[in-house]
Design a binder for these strands. Structure first.
Length: 361
DNA sequence: AACGCGGGGTC
DNA sequence: GACCCAGCGTT
């Protein structure tokens, strides 16, 4: 029989029983019923923001090895954190990770707080992460709502309000189901169910411990939920990116601005990223207007680099320029680095694509 | 409430 | 191609 308004106790008991049998083993996770290290929980939760479990795994291990405690991380230079974070994306997370480590180490004696308001006051910790840390690391009864749980709740109740407007209603429904005990295991159980059973497409309702309580399953329209607001189309921006190489083989890198897109990361210099077509000769003349181009050698092109960010597509045309010493451009924040040493720098994936396009693998 | 913010996996 | 992912901070 369908129970469209499940009681808190029967629902959460069902979920926890399922978790005891089917919990996934993950690097940051302790066995059901055992409290994990709050530092591990915090680190994994930050990395898992908008990032898949499979992607996070190796980064989590690498960070824990490099910085075993929050004190270690707090005393590291931000640049080391960014270098280790390179490739994981959303680099504000890495900057806030370091900020948060400093605050916890300095102001909290290295002990993570266990209450929602204190957690929410920390850099990089929002409503989801605060609730997750409180529940998972400290066994507090807090309501955790991530993308998985939004999907589960919106199907359980067939919520027709589109996200993100439905967020408040979903959180209220989720709170009414959250158990007093083992809220951390309960949250992780729902996230496992969201990842493995209650998937966006073709959910596996036959193995779902909540199917008996699910309105969408009863109706057979699971894939309609969650309802989402329409998305905007991404424009395409274009630019030239310069691979400037000295006779000794070193290539010019520079650091991007501390905030904004790829903030604090390293890059190869490029013209402005614009939606208009790029005229190569004019762009060269403009970018190198102050340089002594008589010391430039042959200029060649690399393969076009395509990359997609959250809100636009990018096409970078690599331009390889061999420069003799007297013609060396004098860029602010410029740094000449041997390609063999690129691994020691915070190069985002876009820039590693440029390396590939120029060095031809 | 809307927007800026990466990158990879999947269909 | 578009969608999704253990979201947060700013405006």
């Amino acid at each position: 029989m369908i129970d469209p308004v499940p009681s808190k106790k029967s629902f959460s008991t069902n979920i926890l029983d399922w978790y005891d049998l089917h919990a996934r083993s993950l690097p940051w996770r302790s066995p059901p019923g055992v409290r994990p290290d709050p530092y591990h929980v915090w680190l994994s939760e930050i990395m898992l923001q908008q990032t898949t479990v499979a992607t996070v795994g190796p980064y989590f291990e690498k960070f824990l090895k490099a910085w075993p405690t929050v004190h270690h991380m707090a005393s590291a230079p931000l640049d080391d954190i960014l270098t280790a974070w390179a490739g994981l994306g959303y680099y504000a997370r890495a900057r806030n990770l370091h900020k948060c480590a400093v605050v916890v180490s300095r102001d909290f004696g290295g002990v993570f707080p266990d209450d929602l308001p204190s957690l929410l006051s920390l850099p990089g910790i929002g409503p989801y992460t605060a609730a997750a840390i409180a529940a998972i690391a400290f066994d507090r009864s807090s309501t955790v709502v991530d993308g998985n749980i939004e999907r589960i709740i919106s199907r359980l109740y067939r919520i027709n309000t589109p996200l993100p407007a439905a967020k408040k209603e979903i959180t209220k429904k989720a709170a009414a189901l959250t158990p007093e005990k083992r809220a951390g295991d309960y949250a992780q159980a729902l996230m496992d169910i969201g990842a493995v059973i209650c998937t966006p497409r073709r959910p596996n309702c036959g193995t779902c411990p909540a199917a008996h309580a699910c309105a969408a399953f009863a109706k057979g329209d699971m894939e309609k939920y969650p309802v989402k607001a329409p998305k905007k189309v991404k424009p395409t921006r274009r630019a030239l990116v310069f691979w400037l190489q000295l006779p000794d083989g070193r290539v010019l890198l520079r650091r991007r601005a501390e905030t904004g897109l790829l903030g604090g990361m390293m890059e190869f210099p490029s013209t402005d990223w614009v939606e208009e077509a790029v005229e190569i000769e004019a762009a060269l003349d403009s970018f190198f207007a102050d340089e002594r181009r008589e010391f430039f050698g042959e200029i060649t092109a690399g393969d076009l680099v395509r990359h997609t960010f959250t809100h636009f597509h990018l096409e970078l045309q690599p331009v390889v320029v061999h420069v003799d010493e007297p013609g060396r451009p004098d860029l602010a924040d410029g740094l000449w680095v041997r390609p063999a040493d690129f691994g020691n720098y915070a190069l985002p994936t876009l820039m590693t694509k440029v390396v590939r396009a120029v060095t031809d693998r």
